[in-house]
Simulated assay, not measured.
Amino acid sequence: MKTNILLAEDDPDFGMILKQYLELEDFEVSWFQNPEDIIPLLSTAFPFQIAILDIMMPNIDGFSLAQTILKEKNNFPILFLTAKNQKIDRLMGLKIGADDYIAKPCDPEELVLRIKNILKRTLPPITEPQIKIGQYSLDTQKLLLSHPNGNARMTVREQELLLYLLKHNHSTITRNDILDNLWETNDYFTGRSLDVFISRLRKYFSNDSEIKIQSLRGIGFEIDFPTH
């Protein structure tokens, strides 16, 4: 099954070049020159796996469009395109929740590589379909965490972090280990963002006192998941 890319680019020449190149790389591309046409799709099945958004567009700029998408589609992978290679743009994009950023004119091969890296990081990893964690059961295909007291639907990033912690179960793991090895860059998540994800995992597992994700000041986390 081909990866379906949502491309928002108002420049007809550059947009056509990107669309044709990505299709040659075996992606399916839905190209929108008017970003407003994307908004109604958010209430549908939204058959895309990643969005490539130009920052400078009429009516709705890329940042605003990204915020609208992420409001409806939590943690949806987004890559920004811009003609301005300025630090403030990059920081703004990452703050909103973008997965990457590339300045125009960009090398198409580099763009494809960045797309593949994003998908590698954000799509659910191939693993056992069912994992027992203490009193919980994780369905990795449905991102569903089940407990006798109720179920919780995890996001892709939450499950990705959980599986990484399980891989290092009964050990101490540093913040840098998580940022460098899981998301491949310390710029991708700030320490505060990582703390938010850790807090969510603690909340998910609050019904089992034997499960511990303990913070170690200045080091990282001590992990203890009883598994079967």
Rank of each mutant, 00 (worst) to 15 (best):
Q20F: 10
L113P: 03
T122F: 09
T68M: 07
I118D: 01
D10Y: 12
N169T: 00
P108Q: 00
R157I: 12
P148N: 04
Q130V: 12
L179N: 04
E28F: 13
P148Y: 05
D187C: 05
P124F: 02
Y136D: 08
I78E: 00
E184D: 04
E23S: 11
S30A: 06
M16R: 15
R175A: 10
D61F: 01
R192F: 08
D54T: 10
D37M: 07
L24Y: 11
L91I: 09
T190L: 07
I60Y: 03
S193A: 11
Q67A: 10
Q49R: 10
K142N: 08
K203R: 12
D224G: 11
I219S: 10
D208E: 09
R192S: 14
D61N: 11
T155D: 04
F32I: 06
G62Y: 05
S64Y: 01
V156I: 13
L162C: 11
S193F: 09
K19P: 04
L24W: 08
S193Q: 15
M154G: 02
F76T: 14
I178W: 02
K167Q: 02
L53T: 03
D224T: 14
I50V: 15
L53C: 05
N59C: 10
I198S: 13
P12S: 05
D224L: 15
D180C: 09
Q214H: 12
T227F: 13
L163W: 05
E160W: 11
R153L: 12
T82I: 03
I178G: 04
D61M: 06
R175I: 14
L79Q: 02
I52L: 01
T172E: 14
D107M: 12
I115C: 07
F225K: 05
L42D: 07
G218P: 00
H228N: 15
N85V: 07
G134M: 04
Q33S: 06
R90D: 01
K104A: 04
Q86V: 08
Y164W: 11
G191R: 10
K71L: 11
L7Y: 02
E36W: 03
A45M: 12
D11K: 13
Y204A: 08
A8T: 04
I50A: 04
T174R: 05
G93Q: 01
T190R: 05
S206G: 03
T172C: 11
A66C: 07
S206K: 06
L24T: 15
K116G: 04
F48L: 07
I69R: 04
L6M: 01
A98D: 02
L41A: 07
H168S: 00
L79Y: 06
S30T: 13
E72T: 15
A45F: 13
T227P: 12
G134V: 06
Y204C: 02
T44R: 12
I115Q: 05
Y136C: 01
L179T: 08
F48W: 10
I133Y: 08
V196R: 15
H168G: 00
F76L: 13
E160P: 05
D10G: 13
N34S: 07
D224K: 15
Q135I: 13
Q130I: 14
T174V: 09
E9R: 08
D99Y: 11
I78Y: 01
E222A: 14
L123S: 11
Q159I: 09
T172K: 14
Q159M: 12
A83W: 09
L119S: 09
F27V: 06
I69N: 07
K203D: 07
E72I: 14
E160V: 12
F221V: 14
L138V: 09
D26Q: 12
